[in-house]
């Protein structure tokens, strides 16, 4: 395998929630001990329940929140602790598209300035040269040049997301982080954007960190998938393997909960409906984070966090069911 473009090791992000008079400050581990790699031109999808730390992970990679532990290497350079000017200089390699196409574009700027801003602030192009490049970018994402002087609110959600993508690829990044970039869109518009991403990947060789909770979309676009639960990656591996042979009980439940748009298949499926709710990240359960809802829970699961075990077919899962030594003792105990 080629050297990874992005390499994240043991990443943790903790938010300190300021207490009031009667409440002490609480610590919320939004991301906890997360490691993954992304190769150049590869798409890694991150899926998981709301609040499982996907956006925080993305923002940490983007260096928009401070990691509390771990390291982030981009193109071999350690960017974990970069600040100020050095951080600004690596930004062009690393760009992001946000979930909400309505709040991620400055309403007071015309499109030419929105898309041209990265070129301006990095001194890449100015004046007529910049406008020419902006036109080319707009055309690349399927919008005409006559949109240059319009304001964001004049565009539909799908068009805004195209604008956000044009802006994000303006500096020819190596990695594009897409945080639920198509979730707010109708299926049809969503597909237009996904096709566009596919084209851009082919033309520009960009790698994607693709965050989504829509497994249908993920299966379509991702090379590899990481499944998060309560701030941790519980399973990771090639898309085919994850979808055909999910190893972690949570992944399995997640896959079975996605309704298939075909009544005959959907109504005859064996479904796993998980009981209960996701525990609060302020008080995560000890041991395996999933043990409060897991249909296969054993005694070991409740005390010690399982380590990642490599899986046949690629990737790994953090579950005692796949850890030969632990299962022996665990099964007997329970």
């Amino acid at each position: 395998m080629t050297a990874p473009l992005l390499s994240v090791r043991d990443l943790a992000v903790t938010f300190h929630l300021r207490g009031g008079l009667l409440r002490p400050t609480r610590h919320l581990k939004a991301v906890n001990g997360v490691s993954f790699d992304i190769a150049p031109g590869e798409t890694l999808a991150v899926v998981g329940e709301s609040g499982s730390g996907k956006s925080t992970m993305a923002r940490a990679v983007m260096r928009l929140v401070e990691p509390s532990a771990g390291s982030i290497h981009l193109d071999g350079d350690d960017i974990t602790a970069l600040r100020g000017e050095p951080l600004r200089r690596i930004r062009p390699k690393l760009q992001m598209v946000f979930q909400d196409p309505y709040s991620s574009l400055d309403p007071s700027m015309i499109i030419a300035d929105v898309v041209g801003e990265p070129l301006t602030v990095h001194g890449v192009a100015t004046g007529a040269d910049r406008d020419e490049r902006v036109q080319a970018l707009l055309e690349q994402v399927g919008l005409g040049r006559y949109h240059m002087n319009r304001y964001p609110y004049e565009f539909s959600g799908g068009q805004r997301q195209r604008i956000a993508i044009a802006r994000a690829i303006a500096l020819q990044p190596k990695l594009l982080v897409l945080d639920e970039a198509v979730s707010a869109l109708d299926v049809s518009t969503q597909n237009q954007i996904l096709n566009l991403l596919e084209d851009l990947r082919r033309e520009l060789g960009i790698a994607y960190l693709f965050i989504s909770h829509d497994l249908g979309v993920v299966e379509h676009i991702a090379d590899r998938v990481a499944v998060t639960y309560l701030g941790r990656i519980v399973e990771e591996g090639p898309t085919e393997r994850i979808f055909a042979k999910p190893a972690h009980p949570y992944t399995e439940a997640l896959l079975s909960a996605v309704p298939i748009p075909n009544p005959r298949i959907q109504r005859s499926r064996q479904r796993i409906v998980l009981p209960g709710d996701v525990p609060s990240p302020l008080a995560p359960p000890p041991g395996c984070p999933f043990h409060t809802r897991c249909p296969h829970v054993m005694d070991v699961c409740k005390t010690v966090m399982p380590a990642h075990t490599p899986m046949a077919g690629g990737g790994s899962a953090a579950c005692y069911l796949h850890d030969p030594q632990a299962t022996e003792g665990g099964r007997r105990a329970s």
Partner: peptide
């Protein structure tokens, strides 16, 4: 935040 992410 988007402006920060592009390096403004």
């Amino acid at each position: 935040e988007a402006a920060r992410s592009i390096g403004c």
